[in-house]
């Protein structure tokens, strides 16, 4: 059995610094979603603490545009897997710094700018399993709130979710390790061999 580290939000810098790329984690507490429009908005408008209805300091930002249904009993999460993180690379470093985020969950990894920001701000990137959206939604227990719903629509709004046992893998840590880059370098070697053999 693979060892899994239990994490509870908010995360402290100590929590973050103890994590290493390759660790399997199980996250409980709250997740805040944010994808393309939220990142553009945060980076361009820099809304202050009082403008955002949830605490972002120490929070984990989840790159996710959930499928949500509004019912009489409130919002119900149907499916909620990660979206591709690289699309917000141009914003993420400044967002991490400005709002003191301690974790990012997404898929596919991020670039050099974000990797440096993880190191400078003691933050960590978790890879969630792309497409495992029902499995992950079952680990989201409650919708606690939402921001920018009317302006950005349900897929792009910032949702405040309560989770229990959300599985992820640390793939970019606060010490400069980056599994995505390692795999890319390794596969590039193979790729170059394959491309080169008929030259």
């Amino acid at each position: 059995m693979v060892k899994t580290i239990d994490l509870r939000t908010p995360l402290s810098s100590e929590n973050v610094l103890s994590l290493r790329a390759g660790d399997f984690v199980s996250i409980s507490g709250s997740l805040i979603t944010g994808r393309d429009k939220i990142h553009k908005y945060l980076a361009e408008h820099r809304p202050g603490k009082k403008d955002i209805p949830f605490e972002l300091s120490g929070a984990i930002l989840y790159h996710c545009g959930p499928l949500i249904r509004k019912t009489e009993a409130g919002y119900k999460i149907i499916s909620a897997g990660p979206t591709t993180s690289m699309r917000v690379e141009m914003y993420e470093a400044s967002v991490i710094k400005e709002y003191n985020l301690k974790g990012i969950i997404g898929k596919g990894g991020m670039g050099e700018k974000t990797l440096s920001a993880l190191k400078e701000n003691a933050c960590v990137y978790f890879q969630a399993i792309g497409g495992a959206a029902v499995y992950l939604a079952e680990r989201i227990k409650k919708v606690l709130g939402v921001w920018k719903l009317d302006e950005f629509g349900p897929a792009e709004a910032m949702w405040h979710l309560e989770t229990e046992g959300f599985p992820a893998i640390v793939t970019m840590d606060a010490h400069g390790n980056n599994i995505h880059k390692d795999i890319e370098n390794m596969s590039f070697k193979k790729f170059s061999e394959l491309i080169g053999e008929n030259n």
Partner: peptide, 28 residues
């Protein structure tokens, strides 16, 4: 024990749960 194995196991469980509960297997 690899992340590949763990990811694929969760994906297969997701496929099963989605079919059984009639929910879209990916939010996209």
């Amino acid at each position: 024990g690899s992340s590949a194995q763990s990811s694929l196991s969760i994906i297969l469980e997701n496929i099963k749960t989605a079919r059984e509960t009639g929910r879209p297997l990916c939010q996209d």
